[in-house]
């Protein structure tokens, strides 16, 4: 599996699209978490204030995007990593070198896991630099989260981002491609989740109840519990942080296992 992980890492690192995804995630995160609140701190409807961009909010600010928009980036990363093999027909090239399907698959998941960690840590690092810069410019005191809080934040961000990446992988393996999995994944993440939350749940009790078992609302609850602003799309504390983490982890495992099962059982055409 180690050999497969190294090979997969090489492919991930050398693929320009993955760096573009990281750049987009970084740009979105910095723009909507720091730049816009800072620029609009004196605006008529501003309710977050410039203080929300200071270092003591680093954890919540760095993971607030993962339930929706940064989650979409993670989903695309997962689809590209698994679906590209179908698009280019490279599964046969890899598998005829001798590794088992499961060893390639676990290597792929390990490499994606590392890439997601890099993405999460990068958002934290960029957020730290940006928040420190703003605090210094405003002459505010630098109060940083504890190392423990930072570790929990990185862990929660990784858990949520990895779950979305696994959804991307399972869609790519199930649909044997790239375009349709990205399309369907984004429709779920950006549209269906919001419709359920904003339209269906207020009208139907059973939808409101069922939401507590869905990946998006649990991801939103987890980041809300760790300080993300409820003004951020997808962030709302519907369930407790313990349940939220457990549900997100369960989805991650189920997506990963289901993708592996499909890859193992189905023909490579």
């Amino acid at each position: 599996m180690w050999a497969s992980t190294l090979a997969e890492l090489t492919k991930l690192v050398r693929r320009p699209a993955n760096w573009l995804l990281l750049a987009v995630a970084l740009a979105l995160s910095l723009t909507f978490t720091y730049l816009v609140p800072y620029a609009g701190a004196d605006g008529p409807t501003a309710d977050r204030g410039v203080a929300s961009t200071f270092p003591d909010h680093l954890v919540g600010n760095s993971i607030g995007g993962w339930p929706v928009f940064a989650g979409a980036i993670a989903l695309i990363l997962g689809v590209l990593a698994a679906g590209g093999e179908y698009g280019w027909g490279t599964w046969k090239t890899v598998l005829t070198q001798g590794p088992s399907r499961l060893s390639v698959y676990t290597g792929k998941l390990a490499a994606i896991g590392l890439a997601i960690l890099v993405m999460v840590v990068t958002l934290f690092a960029a957020g730290a630099v940006t928040s420190a810069t703003i605090a210094a410019a405003e002459g505010a005191a630098m109060r940083w989260p504890s190392a423990g809080d930072l570790a929990v934040g990185v862990g929660a961000g990784w858990l949520i981002a990895m779950m979305w990446a696994m959804l991307g992988v399972v869609l790519a393996v199930g649909l044997r491609g790239v375009a349709m999995p990205i399309g369907l994944g984004l429709v779920w993440l950006m549209a269906v989740q919001n419709l359920l939350t904003a339209v269906a749940a207020p009208l139907l009790d059973w939808v409101a109840e069922a939401q507590k078992g869905l990946p998006g609302p649990n991801a939103g609850s987890l980041v809300a519990a760790l300080g993300s602003s409820p003004q951020t799309p997808g962030v709302a504390e519907l369930v407790g942080s313990g349940q939220a983490a457990a549900v997100v982890a369960a989805y991650l495992v189920v997506f990963g296992l289901f993708g592996g099962l499909m890859l193992r059982r189905r023909d490579i055409l």
Binding site: A3, S4, R15, W88, G89, T93, T96, P99
Partner: peptide
């Protein structure tokens, strides 16, 4: 066992050499 099945298929963003190095890692 070595095989070439139904035409070559590689990663277009890697060089020929890098493609083979990736495959060598798997093997």
């Amino acid at each position: 066992i070595g095989a070439l099945i139904e035409g070559p298929a590689f990663y277009p963003y890697l060089s020929g050499r890098e493609n083979l190095r990736v495959l060598a890692r798997y093997a």
